[in-house]
Design a protein around this nucleic acid. Sequence first.
RNA 1: GUCCUCGUAGCUCAGUCGGAUAGAGCGACCGCCUCCUAAGCGGUAGGCCGUGGGUUCGAUUCCCGCCGAGGACACCA
Length: 552
Amino acid sequence: MTPDDLAAAVSTLVSTLADEGAFRLDSAPDVRVERPKSREHGDYATNVALALAKQTGMPPRELAGMLAQRLATVEGIASAEVAGPGFINVRLDSATQGGLARTVVEAGPLWGHGTSLAGRVVNVEFISANPTGPIHLGHTRWAAVGDAIARVLAAAGATVAREFYINDRGVQMDRFGASVMAVAHGRPVPEDGYHGAYVVDLAAAVLAEQPGIVDLPEDEQLAAFREVAYAVQLGQQQQVLALFGTRFDVWYSERSLHESGAVERGLDRLREQGHVFEQDGALWLRTTDFGDDKDRVLIKADGDYTYFATDTAYYVDKRARGFDLAIYLLGADHHGYVNRLRAVAACAGDDMDDNIEVLIGQLVKITKAGEEVKLSKRAGNIVTLEDLVDEVGVDAARYTLTRYPVDSPLTLDVAEMIRATNDNPVFYVQYAHARIASVLRNAAELGIDWQAADFDPALLDHERENNLLGMLAEFPRVVASAAELREPHRVARYLEDLATAYHRFYDACWVLPRGDEELAGIHVARMWLCAAARQTFANGLDLLGVSAPERM
RNA sequence: GUCCUCGUAGCUCAGUCGGAUAGAGCGACCGCCUCCUAAGCGGUAGGCCGUGGGUUCGAUUCCCGCCGAGGACACCA
């Protein structure tokens, strides 16, 4: 029995009692079943009686008593008692609780997956770094978290596409090309260009790719440098992200948006909806109709499209491609975009609370020996994704970046992170998985086929077995809330708690027969429990894009 | 100036759709390996949950003010 099953049981019980006339019920309550912090309060507790007290006009304890009496007779429930101001503390019988191990093992890789977001077609856009330099640590947070969000949404039943928007148009690209070209000729990089050391490598790569490039006429050469360097740089970004385990379904080029006529189509769409107007020779979008601070220019007085026009067209295009929810994951420096992007959705005739979502990630601050390292691509002071992975590995990097909510700024000390590698929580969690794998390997070596043996779940009645089962039962709820709130860090935190529960179980409950001991029911039952835990670790780590090692 | 996010243990941070004794990791200290992985387990020390009000049976959680930190406010890209 999972907490959701229990909540459903309580819920039907409430309506049954109301139908019988025990009390008046205006609206069905949102029944919440929780794991109490203290085990003395049972396996589960619910505060329905407290929540319903006002509505029914009954004292909470009296209401709770009525519910508890009936609840105790439900199959699988060992006891139900009223406690405190009106909580109902429920204990499950151990067979019901232990049976969860079988449920988990049989569900396999799908254990924890749900249907709360079934039917939603979601576009998750993240990173979208300019193709003018390497992926750095600022992007890396989203590389890890954005990917995890996509995974979690999919686990909740949504159809998800990961998208990377390539800003391959505009002044920055020209400056980029000019910088690479200058370096290739051994000339100083222009003041407004890119000064990073990586430009030198890029120049070399461009020359290797197209040796004759320096002999082209100046203006042609500039364009050629821009294009070749762009291709090389984008290729590197793609390679590094693949190495990091973040794969995109769509690499969407800004140029293609213009070339395909999507910009005009976007404008048409906005015109149809009637929020476009002309003023001072420019074309504007009245975003203030929907909560933006000021109206925005789409086409400047000189006839050029603004960047905002492109953003707008891009959103309209996403919707036209069939996505009913566009999620944007942006850095804190793009904070001002939130209201205007939402307004864009509304101006396009969409529901800005349902079709668009803009998540802002606070920047990652890096310190080295206690001193802040400033990140600036132009100045060339970069900690890249590649550097990070080289130093701490993909798993530690991904895990460290996904275990914190993105709306709080994160400070990572590079030295600390490297030094603390062995103490990193990721190893604590992975170790639990490897430990289980080892136990089950040993079982196989002993010739034990636990899956074929009789499994009596009622034998799992040790306090730490009970606790571990309780933790396992939480997994589907954790996944669902991580998806609903777009907060994959909840999965990481959960896995850490689960690891504690497992290690404590392992410490107190010997799994395999020792020495010449006969194989008994308790051994089999514990192997089922181990297998269920292993599956949960594997599924949880997978949601974070972190590997679940068989050995460590 | 306006708006947004945040203030929880020495450090880095969880938790909170209002609930029963506020958590983890790191750091400090003390214990536990003649049999399944000690990257583990058990224990000790460490908190006016920034601050002042309000709502409530009940506030670290919700509302308002204040203080502090970070960020955003272009016919830029």
